[in-house]
Structure formats: C-alpha cells, structure tokens
Design a protein around this nucleic acid. Structure first.
Length: 451
RNA sequence: GUGGCUAUAGCUCAGUUGGUUAGAGCGCCAGAUUGUGGAUCUGGAAGUCAAGGGUUCGAGUCCCUUUAGCCACCCCA
C-alpha cells in the first residue's frame, strides 16, 4: 500500500521528458551518418588548406543585430546574462566570421581560409526539415579577390559531394554583377533586392508571377520586368549562354565584368577537371541574401531536384564592414547538412547501422574477461573498432544483439577455443565461420571485413 | 508572426450516433533440455487516449485553452 502510494506520488511529480520545440535528439542510427558527413566535409576542407576555427555560441547583441535586417532580428534568440549584458545566440556562421575576422585578421593575415562546422539557432516557426537548432558547415576564403578563390569553392563543393557518394549533381553558378549590370542599364539598381527576391521564386511560382512581382515591388515597367525574367531564363551550354549574355549587358561595365568573371571561372573549373555536366551557368541563381556581390552558386541533386540546394554560397565584397574599416572581400559556401541527409535518406544512401564498431566479441566464458579485453585491445591497435559484450550471458542472446546492432564480424572464443589456442571468426552477414589459430585472428577478421 | 489540419502503447494505426476493466500489428523483455543471431511458437511488460478545463448520468469520442507536429504564407539554411 505504502509502496504504491509512493510510486504514484513520484509518478505525478515526474517531469515529462520532451524536446523543446524546434530542437531534436539524434539517435545513433541518425548520428552515425551525420558524423560521417561531417568527417568527410572536414577532410575535404582541410585538403584545400581551410583551417578549423570556432567562435562562441553567444555574442554581444549589437554584434549580431543589424546585419540581417528586421527579419533575422526577430528570429534571434536573445536575453540578458547574469551581468546584465544583452546577448544573442548566433543565427549563422557568417556574422561571427565577420566579427572574428575584424578582430583577428591582423594576426592571421590574408588570405585567410577557414571552415567552421557548428550549430546555429533561429527562433522562427518550425516546418518539416527546418528546426530552431541546426548545423552549418561553412568554408570561406577571406581577403582574396581573384577568381581563383571562386573556382576553388566550386572545386571544394564538387569534391565534397563526390566524397559523400554523389555522382549526379549540378553546381549552378552565376554572378550578381550580370544582373546588377542589367538593372543598371534600365535604371533599377536601387531595387536590386526586390528583384532578386522575386527571381529566387522563379522555379516555385513561374515566370508570369515573377514578372508581376517585379513590377509591384520594384516598380519596374512591364517591358523591363519581362526583359529581366527573359534574361534569367536563358539556357543551353555554358558557352552559348555566355554568348547570349554579352550583348544584353553591353551597356554596363559591371555587367561585362560579371560575364568575364563567369567565363574565367567556368573555364578554370573545367580545366581543373570538373566534368561539364556538373557545372552549369544558370542566370536565375540569385540567392536572396543582399550581401552577395559577385559569384553565387547553388547545388542541386539530379536525382532529387525538388529538395532544393544542398550546398550554396557566393562572393561578398566587404564581409566585416560593420566592425572594421578594413576592406575584407571573401567567398565561401555552406553545406546544408540536414537537407543533404534528408536527400540521402530518400535516395537510400544511408546504411542502417547502430554501431560504429565492426567487430563484436561475445563475453562467452565468464572466467576469461581479461582474455577478451586483451583480444579486443589487440584488434583495436590494428585500427579496428571492437566491442566486447558487457555481460556473460547466453551466447545466442549476445549474437542477437550483435546482429541487431549491425556488427559485421564476431570473434568467438569459449572454453574449447581457449584450450586449443584458437578463435572462431564468424561473418555475421553470411553466417559463415572459420576457426583459426590465435595469431591469425587479426588477418582473418580483416579478410572478412574487406569483403 | 498569420491561416489551416492533426495528437490513442517505443513505432504504425483500429476504436462503430458519446455507454462496462482501451485493442491489433511491429518492436521490446523472458522462455521453447543449459556453446551460436535473423525464422517459428508461447508468455510478459508497457497507454491517467498530448496537458488542463468544460458539457453530460456517463467523454478516447463533443466544446474551449495550452503544448507539440504537419501543410501553406512570410522568410531563409
């Protein structure tokens, strides 16, 4: 009676476990592929000389405010700390990079290449695939104006997607100067943001409605709006699009520069070895953000175009102008980790595994704990990931556990094997098993794993 | 932030015009003569029907509020 009463009381007081709106837990099954992608990203970034940095999750509020405009200000998580300071949580990695660069570029020198893989927070309304805490994988080169840095971004994106396992994808590139040039020649450059915002919706709402929106928000004439939309829809081989673009921007120095830079970029990237079908000049790529000033790029998966861009970025003239007088041009891009994982899931590219280890050692003979741990240590020192079952329970139960967790091979030894100086190596995928002498265990395990 | 839809076991869902102790499948745990997993069989645990309030003799079922999720808008990653 007493027990029951106590139990109920505790039940009532118990806090209901739940995750905050817009925040997520990651189970091993989700986290293993997630970490794999992050590892690949790190490896690719580093292979180009990008260095890791980190910055605090919290910044002084004034550092974060103002850059993104009213909309991002609203999404900002903000509060006062215990010392009464106004602070905010970073909502992207670009603003912290700007602050970081303004503060440290003197000691770092330029050009400075960094990558930054970290969580950011936005208190906006949630939607499928959109959370209030999410991870960004950014890489940027600061202090380099030459098209070489732009080309390198395309190469990194290309290497990254291939390393992750994609073959069919398209990196769409454009240059803001092309559009600015056109807007300049028809006198609409002061409404560039409105026009860009409308163009971003082209795929979504269609050309007619974009023309309407440009007229409404940017005050363009029907003819000019139609001209913009028409230019943006140019398609065909990159060279052909470039050729069509040239006369359209002939009246504007900026426009010409944009076309020249695009031409140089495409040619460099192609010579560097990126297959033509993976890079496309797409004049409709605008990117809504106003801070992009030159090259812009988006990457779509050919087998799942509807999911949108999985990797995008661009060039900006002056990253840190809010924080320093020093002119810091840069270019970079960001991998959309969550979106990419969603795509891989849908394309069946995610291997179902719930363990990061491949080798399983059952704790079979209760008196032999030390021998099992020693065997595991030996295999680990050869670079394998090995788990020893933590309870000396029935062998069948242990193998069932190994099977469910997705181990690939089990190294089984009981009284008989210990007496004979042998081990049984069992391929958990095929159920085949062989018994080998103790000193041949590593080689046999490696042989099975190699299949 | 605005509008709409939804909420029953760990998961996917049943649950008859409001009417006894709320069900199934999968999963989980334990067994089927004690050294070998995925199959089968048997048994078991598990839900104050999202939370709170209201209508009613009676609410999983109707109404309100809150919370969370989904969809659209806005915006963006």
């Amino acid at each position: 009676m007493d027990d029951e009463a106590d139990g109920n009381e505790r039940n009532d007081e118990r806090i209901k476990p739940r995750t905050l709106k817009g925040f997520r837990d990651f189970l091993p099954e989700a986290m293993i592929p997630r970490e794999r992608i992050m590892d690949i990203a790190r490896r690719v970034f580093r292979s180009y000389g990008f260095s890791p940095i980190d910055t605090p999750a919290l910044e002084y509020l004034d550092v974060l405010l103002g850059k993104g405009g009213a909309e991002t200000d609203k999404q900002l998580y903000r509060f006062q700390d215990h010392g009464g300071r106004d602070v905010g949580m970073r909502f992207d990695l670009t603003v912290p990079l700007a602050r970081f660069a303004a503060q440290h570029i003197g000691t770092l020198g330029t050009p400075f290449k960094r990558y930054h893989i970290a969580c950011v927070w936005r208190g906006e309304n949630t939607q499928r695939g959109r959370y209030r805490e999410f991870m960004q994988c950014d890489f940027d080169t600061i202090g380099a104006k030459n098209v070489a840095a732009d080309a390198e971004v395309v190469l990194v994106v290309h290497d990254l997607l291939r390393a992750i396992g994609f073959e069919r994808f398209t990196i769409r590139v454009n240059n803001r100067l092309v559009l600015s040039g056109l807007l300049e020649s028809i006198g609409l450059q002061s409404h560039a943001t409105d026009v860009l915002r409308a163009l971003d919706k082209l795929a979504k709402i269609g050309p007619e409605r974009v023309v309407e929106e440009i007229q409404q928000t940017a005050g363009a004439s029907a003819k000019d709006a139609a001209c913009i939309v028409e230019m943006v829809q140019l398609s065909g081989p990159n060279d052909a699009v470039l050729a069509q673009l040239r006369p359209l921007v002939s009246g504007s120095e900026r426009g010409k520069e944009g076309v020249d830079r695009l031409s140089e970029l495409l040619s460099a990237v192609s010579t560097a070895g990126v297959p033509a079908e993976r890079v496309r000049l797409d004049v409709s790529i605008a990117r809504g953000l106003d801070y992009y000033t030159g090259t812009v790029l988006e990457t779509t998966l050919d087998d799942l175009p509807t999911i949108g861009s999985v990797c995008s970025g661009g060039r900006y003239d002056n990253l840190a102008e809010l924080y320093t007088n020093q002119q810091l041009p840069g270019i970079g891009a960001s991998l959309g980790l969550d979106r990419l994982l969603a795509a891989m899931e849908e394309l069946g590219m995610i291997e179902k595994t719930r363990t990061p280890a491949q080798v399983f050692i059952p704790y079979f003979d209760a008196s032999r704990l030390g021998d099992y741990l020693h065997l595991a240590a030996e295999l680990r020192s050869a670079g394998l990931a090995v788990e020893v079952y933590p309870e000396p329970t029935k062998l069948g139960k242990q193998l069932q556990y190994a099977d469910r967790k997705g181990f690939r091979v089990a190294v089984i030894a009981g009284e008989r094997e210990f007496a004979a100086g042998e081990c049984q190596i069992k391929n958990l995928t095929t159920t085949e098993s062989v018994t080998v002498p103790r000193d041949a265990v590593l080689a046999e395990v490696q042989r099975v794993l190699a299949k």
